[in-house]
């Protein structure tokens, strides 16, 4: 329990982060920015897990360990994403999402 900060404040921040991430994913054109939006989503999940663990179930560690695994897997995800972006950069010389719209409908 953190002094004078109620749980709602954390949850409001994490909810805003989540939806900012979704918006960024949908409207951004640069692939790196889209990747950053995904990281925002994952980090809002992390905040949720940590806050629930700290405030509601302080005598166990499930939430904390979930966060550790999420962070590790997010790193793996980012590395594969960057590899694919580099592959794309070699073809088009930029990483704009407009390039990958050859296949539609």
């Amino acid at each position: 329990m953190i002094q004078d900060i109620p749980i709602q404040y954390f949850l409001i921040v994490s909810t805003i982060m989540f939806f900012v991430g979704i918006c960024g994913f949908l409207i951004r054109h640069n692939l790196i920015t889209i990747l950053m939006s995904i990281e925002l989503i994952l980090n809002s999940v992390n905040i949720n897990f940590l806050v629930f663990n700290k405030y509601l179930f302080p005598n166990q560690l499930q939430g904390n360990f979930f966060v550790l695994i999420v962070v590790a897997i997010a790193a793996a995800e980012a590395s594969i994403a960057i590899a694919l972006f580099i592959n794309m950069y070699r073809m088009y010389n930029n990483i704009d999402v407009e390039n990958i719209s050859e296949m539609k409908y």
Binding site: F25, I41, L84
Partner: peptide, 21 residues
């Protein structure tokens, strides 16, 4: 092929994020 890879990766990360939330 590159397009398919990027689309699959981005969509599956987004869906995992939603799932985790």
């Amino acid at each position: 092929s590159a397009e398919a890879g990027i689309k699959l990766l981005l969509i599956s990360s987004l869906s995992t994020g939603i799932l985790l939330y």
